[in-house]
Simulated scan of single mutants.
Amino acid sequence: MTSPQSATAPAGDDTGVDTDKAQWQTADLDLSAYLDRIGYDGPRTATLDTLRAVHRAHMSTLSFTNLDLFLGRGNDLEMRNLADRIVGARRGGYCFEQNLLLAAALEGLGFSVDRQLARVRRGSTKVRARTHAVLLVESDGRRWLADVGFGDEGLIEPIPFEDGAELTVGEWTWRVDLDGDEWVLRSRHPDRWFDVYSLRLEHHFRADFDEANHFTATYPLSTFVGRLIAQRGDDRIRQTLLNRELTTQYPDGRRETRELSDAEVVTALRDVFHLGVTGEDEAPLRAALDAARPRRS
């Protein structure tokens, strides 16, 4: 079993301030408000049980979505703004938002967290830019890959960050493999292992995440620009909303897809994806759906 050493973070400056932690604005998160938002009322101790429970509670409550981007409202990564959107306004978010929020919460609980950038594969070995955020968390004498920001193929609980490690939750199974100098997360499909994403370990800075987020949020051909996406998964099913199309995926590979009316899109965002869509959002949402990029563009 191979386990490369993690990159060494700068210890701080001569003022005694831990500059590496300060850049992530962990102290700006109201931990109690976050835990209330995800419905977690368990121990606030840095144990593996806590890590698993918080990760699962986050995944079951905060859906993956680009709703605010789709409505033209941006998604900067300032921690207070992240908390206002996701915790206060119940909006959800995608990987940079979701995993930076989780990282701050875990650090508030006493965990050591390493923020990394990954390359999305989605079944392909084509080299893509590093536009996915993931977390490595120290617990129980091991490192764990935690990720609440991938959507349909995303982890429900953390998986050991070790070559050959597997995790089964409900009907879904994931695996971590070391492929040369890249770590690969794979998801078990009925006919094969499906490459989800890969990463090389190095030390990252807040500026790296801001740059990757800016590209993801503004590049015209980005998956997240010009169309509505919302995703969530539980132990049994995975659900994806793309513009007006709602798809339910089952572990045996079956998919059920149906077209929604504008009113049904609003209902799905609220009831299926647990997002805070207000009455004031409905007219801009309809207009954005009319102008949305089609599925295969």
Results as ranks from 00 to 15, higher is better:
150 F>C: 01
175 R>F: 12
159 I>Y: 02
124 S>A: 15
289 L>I: 09
112 S>L: 09
196 V>D: 09
20 D>E: 12
20 D>W: 15
204 H>Q: 09
226 G>K: 02
161 F>N: 03
13 D>Y: 01
104 A>P: 01
130 R>L: 14
105 A>S: 12
21 K>G: 12
245 E>V: 12
149 G>C: 10
220 P>A: 11
69 L>D: 03
73 R>D: 12
167 L>Q: 15
233 G>T: 12
239 Q>R: 15
237 I>W: 00
269 L>F: 05
142 R>T: 04
85 R>T: 06
257 T>Y: 04
292 A>Y: 07
144 W>N: 04
156 I>A: 03
86 I>G: 06
63 S>A: 15
141 G>K: 08
130 R>Y: 08
178 L>T: 11
209 F>Q: 04
209 F>T: 04
25 Q>L: 13
83 A>C: 09
44 R>A: 14
61 T>A: 13
284 P>Y: 04
72 G>P: 07
282 E>V: 15
101 L>H: 01
125 T>H: 11
42 G>M: 06
164 G>T: 11
116 Q>M: 14
273 F>A: 05
160 P>Q: 14
275 L>C: 05
200 R>T: 15
138 E>W: 10
297 S>Q: 11
75 N>F: 10
287 A>F: 02
157 E>W: 06
209 F>W: 05
84 D>G: 00
253 G>S: 05
33 A>P: 01
161 F>C: 02
113 V>G: 03
229 I>S: 06
35 L>V: 13
133 A>Y: 02
116 Q>F: 07
104 A>L: 09
82 L>I: 15
168 T>P: 00
35 L>M: 13
127 V>F: 08
268 A>N: 07
205 F>I: 06
114 D>A: 10
278 T>V: 06
270 R>M: 02
292 A>F: 08
162 E>C: 08
149 G>M: 06
264 E>I: 02
215 F>I: 14
130 R>F: 09
225 V>N: 01
288 A>Y: 05
272 V>I: 13
106 L>D: 03
209 F>K: 07
213 N>Y: 03
99 N>V: 10
154 G>L: 04
58 H>I: 12
27 A>F: 01
62 L>W: 00
4 P>K: 01
51 L>M: 05
234 D>Y: 01
224 F>C: 10
94 Y>I: 05
111 F>P: 01
124 S>K: 12
4 P>A: 07
45 T>H: 11
214 H>G: 06
254 R>D: 14
128 R>I: 07
130 R>K: 13
86 I>Y: 04
193 W>M: 09
192 R>W: 05
251 P>Y: 03
72 G>W: 04
55 H>E: 07
207 A>R: 13
23 Q>I: 07
52 R>I: 09
203 H>L: 13
221 L>F: 12
192 R>S: 14
27 A>C: 00
297 S>T: 11
264 E>R: 03
197 Y>E: 10
269 L>K: 06
222 S>N: 04
66 N>T: 05
244 R>H: 07
184 V>S: 05
221 L>C: 02
50 T>Y: 05
26 T>D: 15
5 Q>P: 07
62 L>M: 12
240 T>I: 12
208 D>V: 05
